[in-house]
Computed example of a mutant assay.
Amino acid sequence: MFTGIIEEIGKVKMIQRGDITKIAIECDKVLNGTRIGDSIAVNGVCLTVTNVGKNLFTADLMRETLKSSNLGNLKIGSMVNLERALSISGRLNGHIVTGHVDTVGTIVNKNRIMNSNVFKIKIDERYSKYVVSKGSIAVDGISLTVVEALASYFTVSVIPHTELNTTLNFKRIGDSVNIEVDILSKYAEKLLLKKGMKELVLENGF
């Protein structure tokens, strides 16, 4: 479980591709107290730490992870957002983030308004139903508030502090971002569907 509050930006130091891709990420803050087997969100993807070294950790990436996220686009030197799993005594400053990416979006526009950058992000319309104005969404693991939500895209307003302390500072139009919708919306949908099916059965006497 994560909060979407990025602790630091890491740098990819090694990628060893194969049936299981091995990756090493240079970092500092997230190594504090981290042990083998712990979880770290990398661009919003929950990865298991396989080794901890001096100023870096390693993790394994399965083919499904590479296919369903933007981690497959990483190269040596790529910058990534990092967050350790939420401790039981920690504050939930962002929102509930599972580290399980739903889809990959594409930045189609950046527009500076006042002191913030508004990012317009295109997503698969299958997931737009989970995105609502003023709701929460994780973009490359960053907890953000949705400004506008339409059928094929949504916008988020990013303050300078967030942009400078995450990889959004390096993102350009056309770049991909991992998207995790609010888990609460998916739970609500499932409950409503079950309730609707139950009522349908009672009404029709099945």
Rank of each mutant, 00 (worst) to 15 (best):
D175H: 05
A151K: 13
K67P: 04
L192T: 09
N178V: 04
K198R: 05
S133D: 07
L200K: 05
K190H: 12
L56Y: 12
R35N: 02
E64R: 12
I23K: 02
K22S: 08
R17A: 03
D60L: 10
V146Y: 15
T34I: 12
K190Q: 13
R63H: 12
N109D: 03
G72Q: 04
P160I: 10
N111P: 07
G44Y: 03
G174R: 08
S87I: 13
V108D: 01
I173P: 02
K13F: 11
S185D: 04
L61T: 10
G53K: 13
V108R: 10
A85K: 07
F119R: 02
S39T: 05
V118A: 09
V108F: 05
D175C: 08
I121N: 00
N115M: 14
I159N: 05
M197H: 08
V97G: 00
I6D: 01
K29Y: 12
K194D: 03
E7M: 12
I23Y: 10
K54T: 10
L184G: 02
G196Q: 04
T34Q: 01
G196T: 04
I159Y: 08
G174V: 11
S133M: 12
A59Q: 07
R17T: 07
A151I: 08
I173Y: 05
M114G: 03
T34A: 06
I137S: 10
V147I: 11
G18P: 08
N81R: 11
D28Q: 13
I113W: 05
V52K: 11
I183N: 01
N111H: 15
G90A: 15
V45E: 01
N115C: 14
E163Q: 15
V104H: 00
M14C: 06
L61H: 03
V108H: 02
L71H: 04
K129P: 07
N81D: 08
L193S: 12
L191N: 14
N117P: 08
F206K: 06
G77P: 07
E125Y: 09
I25G: 01
F119H: 00
S128E: 05
I137G: 06
D60P: 08
G90L: 14
L71I: 14
I88G: 11
N73K: 10
D60K: 07
S133F: 09
R112C: 14
A41M: 06
E199D: 06
N115S: 15
F206M: 06
N109S: 03
G105Y: 01
L74P: 00
G196W: 03
G205H: 05
S69M: 02
Y130N: 03
I159S: 04
L31E: 01
E8R: 14
Y153H: 11
E148G: 06
L82T: 10
I179L: 09
I23V: 14
S39C: 08
D182C: 13
V118T: 15
F119D: 00
D19V: 10
A149H: 13
N55F: 13
S133V: 10
R84Y: 01
N55I: 09
I88H: 13
I5V: 13
N204C: 03
K54L: 09
E26F: 14
